[in-house]
Structure formats: structure tokens, C-alpha cells
């Protein structure tokens, strides 16, 4: 057993959770875990339930009775569940939080800020405060880093994101064994570019595919979507086309980001002949997708260009 004691037992579960194999997470029986870890397992199972878009209130309730004295945790999970089921109207749980007091609370709050308040900056502040307040920090609690890296990258701040990765050097080796490290590293590898890096990221996901995803098509969908991006980065267009075929076989619901990437692919492989169609689809699914925002911003920028030179001509 290495520096953090639960890693051995929870390794598989964490891997499954962070690679969207939620059905598998749910399939674990609490009894098969040691007493110490059962609550953690249940927490992941509740989150997986929510992630699958199901109502988790029953399992939360039964958890409350089984693990007495963990009221705050279940309160947090309920709030998260309610949020997913009823939207922001019902609860002010997250808004009332001043700062995160534990890993899960911090992570979920950050997600809340971004998703419901559209306030990435606040989410970043929230996370960095938690992380900087080292008395809370444990080396096996890496999820805040994962969220933080993504938020930095959404903002295009590669430097800060990369700092986090570099900071992992100060952690025990085992921290870098974990799935979270590998996932966030794969993102930075993609951003860093160059064949070698992208290939490494590619193989990481390619390897994940070798797990059995029969019951978790949404997990496979996600991985294939990431592979699609990496394959395009490598400019392997025929392979990208193959991936699209595989993705469509999964018949998962329409995904905005996938469509955004298909637009790029269409420009590269088909001269953009389906772009209008795809843009239409994207607008229907997610009006606020980053690509659409960027697209309209660039369009208006172009309007300015047109206007500027028309006057001078």
C-alpha cells in the first residue's frame, strides 16, 4: 500500500468514475469494500447516479440512515441532486457557501458556479482558495486540481494550468499514478501540441477503450469524442472519419462539442460543405456553446473589417 491508504481499494472505482463508466461504478457492492471506504464508494455512486441523469434522492436517503452522522455530506449531495433535477430555483445551498470546506463541496460548488452562474472566475477563486489553504489539502484529493485545470484551459490560460501539472512533482509519486493526474495531463499534452505529446494523450484514451463499455455507452462516447479531437490534431483524417462512424454506432444523444469539432473536421476534409447544416444543429442543442460564441464574435469582428475598408475604398 502506498502513501495514501485507500488508493489500492478505490483505484478501480476512481478509474471508472473519472472515465464515465457510471454503470460500473453503480455495480459495486458496498460490502465488498472495507468499512473506511464504504462512504466514499457510496458518494461516488450517488454522483454517478446523478451523472447518469437519474434521481438520486432514494439512494441518498438510504445512505443517510446507513452512515449516520454524515449529515453535511448528504446535504451537499442532495443539493447537487436537486440542482440537477430541479434547477437553481429550489436551493440556495451553493450560493450560501462562503468557501469550500472539503474536496467534494469545493468541486461541486465550482461546477455550480460555472454551470449555473456562468462565472468561471468565481469558480477559479473558490478552487484556488481551497487549494491554497493547505490545511484542508490532502494528496489524495486531486479533483479540485482537475476542475481547476479545465477552468484555466477554458479561459485559454495554459500557463496556470501547466503550473498545476508541474506542481504535481512535489506530490508523492503515487499521486501521479492516479487517473486524475493522467486525465489532466492528457489535456495539457493536447494543448502543448507536437506529435509526441498528442500521441501520448491519444494512447492514454485508446487504452481506456480497452475496458468493457457495454453498459456505459456514454463513457465510450466521451472517450471516442476525445479521440476524435486528438486524431484531428494529428491530422489523421481517415481515422477521424472512422471514429465518427464508431461514435454514431453508439447512438448517444446529440453532443454540442462533438458537432463543434465536426465543423472543424468538415472544413478540413470536405471544404466546409456541411458547415451551415452543422451550425444549425449546434444552435439547436446548445445556444451558448463556446464555438457559437466564438463564431458570432468573429463574424462581428469581420463586419468591422468590412465596414472599415468599404469606407476607405
Amino acid at each position: 500500500m502506498d502513501s495514501f491508504s485507500d488508493s489500492g481499494e478505490l483505484y478501480v472505482l476512481k478509474n471508472q468514475f473519472y472515465t464515465n463508466q457510471h454503470q460500473k461504478v453503480l455495480s459495486h457492492s458496498l460490502e465488498s469494500y472495507s468499512k473506511d471506504n464504504q462512504l466514499t464508494v457510496l458518494t461516488y455512486q450517488i454522483r454517478s447516479t446523478i451523472a447518469l441523469g437519474k434521481d438520486a434522492s432514494n439512494i441518498i436517503e438510504s445512505g443517510k440512515t446507513r452512515f449516520e452522522g454524515n449529515e453535511p455530506l448528504f446535504q451537499l449531495l442532495s443539493a447537487w441532486d436537486d440542482l440537477k433535477s430541479f434547477g437553481t430555483d429550489d436551493s440556495t445551498y451553493f450560493d450560501d457557501l462562503k468557501r469550500g470546506e472539503n474536496e467534494l463541496q469545493t468541486v461541486l460548488s465550482a461546477l455550480y458556479f460555472v454551470k449555473f452562474r456562468k462565472d468561471i472566475d468565481q469558480a477559479i477563486t473558490f478552487l484556488t482558495e481551497y487549494i491554497d489553504n493547505s490545511s484542508y489539502l490532502k494528496f489524495d484529493e486531486l479533483e479540485p486540481f482537475l476542475v481547476l485545470v479545465q477552468l484555466y484551459l477554458i479561459k485559454g490560460n495554459f500557463k496556470e494550468a501547466n503550473k498545476i501539472l508541474l506542481n504535481f512533482k512535489n506530490f508523492p509519486d503515487a499521486a501521479r499514478d492516479g487517473i486524475i493526474y493522467q486525465v489532466l495531463e492528457s489535456w495539457l499534452l493536447s494543448l502543448r501540441g507536437e506529435s509526441d505529446n498528442i500521441n501520448n494523450a491519444y494512447y492514454f484514451y485508446d487504452e481506456l477503450l480497452s475496458s468493457d463499455f457495454d453498459n456505459d455507452p456514454q463513457g465510450k462516447f466521451k472517450i471516442l469524442s476525445v479521440l476524435f479531437v486528438l486524431t484531428l490534431q494529428l491530422r489523421h483524417y481517415p481515422e477521424a472519419q472512422e471514429l465518427l462512424a464508431q461514435i454514431s454506432e453508439l447512438s448517444q444523444g446529440p453532443d454540442a462539442t462533438l458537432i463543434a469539432n465536426r465543423i472543424t473536421f468538415d472544413y478540413l476534409a470536405n471544404g466546409g460543405s456541411h458547415v451551415d447544416e452543422l451550425l444549425g444543429e449546434l444552435k439547436q442543442i446548445d445556444q451558448e456553446h463556446a464555438m457559437l460564441n466564438d463564431y458570432s464574435e468573429k463574424n462581428s469582428k469581420f463586419d468591422e473589417v468590412v465596414a472599415k475598408y468599404n469606407v476607405s475604398a
Binding site: L111, Q150, I154, W187, A290, M291
Partner: peptide
């Protein structure tokens, strides 16, 4: 076309928007 052809969106955590990556 030129602008978009070098941009990709890398899906990360489901709850969050994707990250922009480049070709």
C-alpha cells in the same frame, strides 16, 4: 474557414464547457 479549421474543442468534465485546443 481558416479561423475555424485550426480550432477544436476538447471535452473535459461533463459539467464544464470544453477546452479549446488547436491544430
Amino acid at each position: 474557414e481558416v479561423y475555424q479549421a485550426s480550432k477544436l474543442y476538447l471535452p473535459g468534465i461533463d459539467e464544464l464547457p470544453p477546452m479549446q485546443t488547436f491544430i
